[in-house]
């Protein structure tokens, strides 16, 4: 059982702040590090894996700083987002080299076990250069697992992986977490995190936006007001009708046509809008969400 801790950790590059005063503790089980692209997820994983010195604060593994502490890699298994460029090696040669570098007593047997775990035993004797993205991802995971680490850090492990292999990877991560390992993976896709982790840490623009149980944070996200633009044959009458709906918190007529609608309960609004239109004889021409991007969801969380 190992615990990774960031304590008031910041990292900046010149005038650019990549990570700003983050404190978090990652313990056994699967933790999802969620945030939009550019939020600082890779920086956090680099800090946790000893590949980046914190500009302020501390990053420790079981109480020991990880920066410039090569012995920490006996405990940590790292799956970076970086592609494997060892195309001239076979999958088995690559994983075996990792096992040897860890100084394992029987690197051959450990290699076989790790390849079996990720179901790459059969194609392991082909060169990595011939692998699909999903296969390369699994070989990367095998190389990180070969020394049976207590901590597994994965940076965007599902990127570019086809759905079947994604499912397989997710099952693997859940199993690793169930075995008592400390597993942390980053993702910018809410649904990915939902399927694997209960505990999530949300980062936005280098700041720690939320932390805790997935269900609670998901609730925060889905309950936020959502903006839509609705165009109808009579915008003013539609606006008057919608403001009477409990699920709508604000309406505003657009100068160029259409109505800006702020919705507090998306489910109720989706049911009520067509009914209201039919009852009042209004013809809806267009309905467009204006802030459905994940960034806006995260921004809402940061803003509280």
């Amino acid at each position: 059982m190992s615990v990774l801790s960031l304590d008031a950790t910041s990292r900046w590059y010149g005038n650019v702040v990549a990570v700003n005063g983050i404190s978090m503790t990652v313990g056994p089980g699967v933790t999802g590090l969620l945030g939009p692209n550019g939020a600082g997820k890779t920086t956090i994983i680099a800090l946790m894996s000893g590949f980046l010195a914190p500009s302020a604060g501390t990053v420790t593994l079981d109480g020991e700083p990880v920066w410039r502490h090569t012995d920490a890699y006996r405990t940590i298994g790292l799956v970076p987002e970086r592609e494997l460029s060892f195309g001239y090696l076979t999958g088995r040669q690559f994983v075996l080299a990792n096992a040897e570098l860890h100084g394992l007593a029987d690197p051959g047997a450990a290699t076989g076990r790790a390849l079996d775990v990720v179901e790459m035993g059969e194609p392991a004797d082909r060169r990595i250069g011939t692998y699909s993205k999903g296969m390369r991802q699994r070989v990367k995971l095998a190389s990180a697992l070969v020394h049976d680490p207590a901590v597994l850090l994965l940076d965007e492990p599902f990127n570019g992986v086809d759905p079947r292999q994604r499912l397989h990877l997710m099952t693997l991560l859940r199993r690793m977490g169930g075995e008592g390992r400390t597993v942390l993976f980053s993702s910018h896709i809410l649904e990915e995190v939902e399927q694997v982790a209960r505990q999530i840490e949300v980062v936005v623009s280098g700041r720690h936006a939320a932390s805790g149980d997935f269900g609670r944070i998901r609730q925060l996200m889905t309950d936020r007001p959502v903006q839509y633009v609705v165009s109808a044959d009579d915008d003013r009458r539609l606006a008057a009708s919608l403001i009477a709906e409990p699920s709508v918190v604000a309406v505003a007529l657009r100068a160029t046509g259409g109505v800006d609608v702020s919705v507090s309960d998306f489910g109720a609004f989706a049911v009520r809008l067509p009914r209201v239109a039919r009852e009042r004889g209004i013809r809806i021409q267009e309905l467009t969400p204006t802030d459905e991007s994940l960034e806006s969801v995260f921004a809402y969380l940061v803003g509280g």
């Binding site: 894996s49 590949f51 090569t70 012995d71 920490a72 890699y73 006996r74 940590i76 790292l78 970076p80 970086r82 592609e83 494997l84 460029s85 060892f86 990792n98 570098l101 860890h102 100084g103 990367k140 190389s143």
Partner: peptide, 19 residues
């Protein structure tokens, strides 16, 4: 050079082996 340029040297460095 190539390993440093594309960052894949990280696979070798993430080991308990002195730099």
């Amino acid at each position: 050079g190539p390993e440093i340029d594309d960052g894949s040297v990280v696979y070798l460095l993430a080991k308990p082996v002195g730099r």
